[in-house]
Amino acid sequence: MNHPDPEQLLRYAEGEDVPAAVASHMVECDQCTAALADVARFETRLATSSTLPDGERAALRRVTERLLATPAAARRPRLLAKLGVAVLAAAAVLVATLLLWTSPDGLVGFDVRRYDPANVVRSERLERFALDVRVDASRWVALWQLDGKVGKRLMPHADPLLRWLGSEMPLPAGPHRVPAAEVLDFEFPSNQPPTGLVLVTFEQEPAEGTLAAIEQMIATTARDGLQAAMAAKWPEARVLPVPGR
């Protein structure tokens, strides 16, 4: 029997996509199965023997519990995206709403919803926000959080699997929740709220170079001149304040 390369065996073991012949070989080869089982036992032993300070473990456990508190989001993200506004209304305490109306093309309006997460230990003093975005034509959306001089990109996310935070891009004309589900909402410490947001809509998917150019402008432009500078280059750009408490 010809066995797959060791490299392919290990890639198969980790769940990577491998040629179909490797997977079918594994069904009938006890030798390869035993070899991988040896590695799996070793990995599991190492993994479960790793240690962490109790305080850090507890903090991360709280993060996990909070994220997993909305299991429907994990199982059916697209369905939840459709139900997002209703879920938010049930779970969140809406403390402020900012409604702005802009030009009739592309981005029509948006609400910034800042709220206290319902399932977070109070001492953590965390808040979240999400946006309700309305577009009158198909649009891609990019969003940055302003913290002092820094523009932290919120969407598209760096992880390709989370890139559009559950939304189907481009957003079709109509109202949308961004992120698509509450579990993906943006979080910040209560004592360090973002100083603002930059929202830009595009007719086409923005290239990485475009996103980098926007970040460069955010980093080098005074805040009071940012809206004008952004709009001059990207007409559908909006600099938004984050509502107060």
Binding site: R41, E43, A47, T48
Partner: peptide, 11 residues
């Protein structure tokens, strides 16, 4: 999950 969750997680 073909062999261990640890291996999958590492990936």
């Amino acid at each position: 999950l073909r062999t261990s969750f640890a291996g999958y997680l590492a990936w």
